[in-house]
Amino acid sequence: MKKWLIALGIILVLAFGLYRWAVNFNNTAIELKESSTQNWANVESAYQRRNDLIGNLVKTVQGAADFEKNTLTDVIEARAKATSVSIDPTNITPEQLAKFNEVQGGLSGALKSLLVTVERYPELKANQNFLELQAQLEGTENRINVERNRFNETVMPYNKHIKIFPNSILAGVFDFKELAYFKADAGAEKAPEVNFEFN
């Protein structure tokens, strides 16, 4: 009879230990994933701020100069594409992130073209509204970069938590999937060429 009680005690201790491990794994994974989700929302907020500023920038540029319509059209179209792509922050895949980066990169490129082309218009460069908007856009680009870096910083501990053994077993059981990191655009390691010749 005593052997039976000892065996039952060992089974209960093991079962309780497994239960505590599963609960601890699940709760930690949820906390880490929520932290990443919150940081993703900050990334989207920074992009939204840029999208909001672009409308004001385009209106200021249109009002201040007889401006090239193609450049403005490119910015407006790129902004529309950028706002049409969204990601589920609880299930960020590399494919979704690549598509998101592609449209945001298109918007960044269109904005760079706009700001370089604006150099032709001295009266626009002296316009206080334009200067303020340009400074706001530069600050927003910095915010976007900071928020993307913070997002990556929160993805790492989450991915590490669900990938290490034996947590990887429970990750499969509880259906926790790896999150994708923000990565630089292809060719971003090369410095861009800046050409101020407008002939």
Rank of each mutant, 00 (worst) to 15 (best):
M1Y: 08
M1C: 00
K2D: 07
K2A: 13
W4R: 11
W4I: 10
L5A: 12
A7N: 03
A7E: 03
L8K: 04
L8F: 12
I10R: 02
I11M: 14
I11W: 10
L12G: 06
F16K: 04
R20N: 11
R20L: 12
V23Q: 07
N24I: 00
N24A: 11
N24D: 15
N27K: 06
A29T: 06
A29E: 04
I30M: 07
K33S: 11
S35G: 11
S36Q: 05
S36V: 05
T37S: 13
Q38Y: 10
Q38V: 15
N39E: 12
W40M: 15
W40R: 05
A41L: 10
N42K: 14
V43M: 05
V43Y: 01
E44F: 01
E44Q: 14
D52I: 08
L53C: 03
I54T: 10
T60F: 03
T60I: 03
T60N: 09
V61R: 06
Q62P: 00
K69F: 02
N70H: 07
T71E: 05
T71F: 07
V75T: 08
V75Q: 06
I76L: 11
I76A: 12
E77R: 10
A78N: 06
K81S: 08
A82I: 04
A82D: 04
S84W: 01
V85M: 03
I87E: 05
I87N: 03
P89H: 02
T90Y: 09
I92V: 12
P94D: 04
E95M: 01
E95Y: 02
E95H: 03
L97S: 11
K99L: 09
N101F: 01
E102A: 13
E102G: 01
V103M: 07
V103R: 03
G105I: 01
G106L: 01
L107H: 06
L107I: 06
S108L: 03
A110L: 08
K112M: 11
K112E: 10
L114Q: 07
L115S: 03
L115N: 09
R120W: 05
Y121K: 06
L124V: 11
A126W: 02
N127Q: 05
L131F: 00
L131M: 14
E132F: 02
L133T: 04
Q134V: 03
A135N: 14
A135V: 04
A135C: 01
L137I: 10
L137Q: 02
E138H: 03
G139E: 12
G139T: 09
T140L: 02
N142M: 07
R143D: 14
I144T: 07
I144P: 00
N145K: 13
N145G: 12
E147N: 13
E147M: 13
N149T: 13
R150S: 13
N152Y: 07
N152R: 02
E153A: 15
V155G: 04
M156Q: 15
P157A: 03
P157E: 04
N159H: 08
K160D: 11
I162V: 11
I162F: 09
F165R: 06
P166G: 08
P166A: 11
S168N: 15
L170E: 05
V173K: 14
V173S: 06
V173W: 12
F174Q: 06
K177I: 04
K177E: 14
K177R: 13
K177C: 01
D185T: 14
A186E: 15
G187D: 10
A188P: 07
A188L: 08
E189H: 09
A191Q: 15
A191E: 15
P192R: 06
V194R: 10
N195S: 11
N199L: 11
